[in-house]
Amino acid sequence: MSLEALLKHPALWKGRQQHHGRETLSTGYPDLDAALPSQGWPLGALTELMVAHEGIGEFTLLLPALYALTKQQHWTALVAPPHIPYAPALLNAGISIERMLIVDSHHDHKDAFWAAEQLLRSGIFSAVILWSAENGDDRQQRRLQLAAEQGKAWAVCYRPERVANAASPAGLRMILQHNNGLHINIIKNRGGQLRSINLRKKTTSPDNNRQVNITPFAAQAKNEKRVN
């Protein structure tokens, strides 16, 4: 058997090339795209983000991808966000907010997981972002992973940093910290390598020059503005 025929064999796993030809969802950050085997956020799989503490740009990280999806009229959902998702800020990031469903679970952990799973499974939502303040367990994460596979959706689950060492079925796991910008520590990367990336304050999204940085609009509010 020639090598070429052997390479075409469906049972052969070709490591990093496995995502060729698939649709990809760029993260909007070239450094991060380069570190991921699918050249972007993994679709049909669960991404876990473990955050040290809020306010370090952990949600801003997702905005370029959410912008790209909602612009194409895909539905996205935020399940159990920790605070009010602020419409003016989302609009500033270019997101079509009429395509972003907010699911308020009234601090019920189980309801939030259930809702996220239903939304993923439906196949109607391209992206479902879930905030989980509690530790959660392996079984719940597996259900999310399966639902994401079934709905071919981009599933993201924010979890407390303390669960970073626990086992998880998620395809991609990252620890987000603050270190002169957002510091991403990839601790699990199915089909790719483990890396650490520092997103500095200047990065641009690939499809236009819209500023989707960690500190995107710092320049605008410099002047004191009087209203009325």
Binding site: E54, P81, A218, K225
Partner: peptide, 30 residues
């Protein structure tokens, strides 16, 4: 212009025109 009144909820799948550019605003409002 009051930040807490600059947004509101609406039923899914209804359409309102959203436009305008705002000064720098946080993603989370408490």
């Amino acid at each position: 212009h009051r930040p807490e009144k600059a947004w509101k909820k609406r039923a899914p799948d209804t359409y309102d025109e959203n436009s305008g550019h705002w000064p720098e605003r946080p993603l989370w409002l408490l």
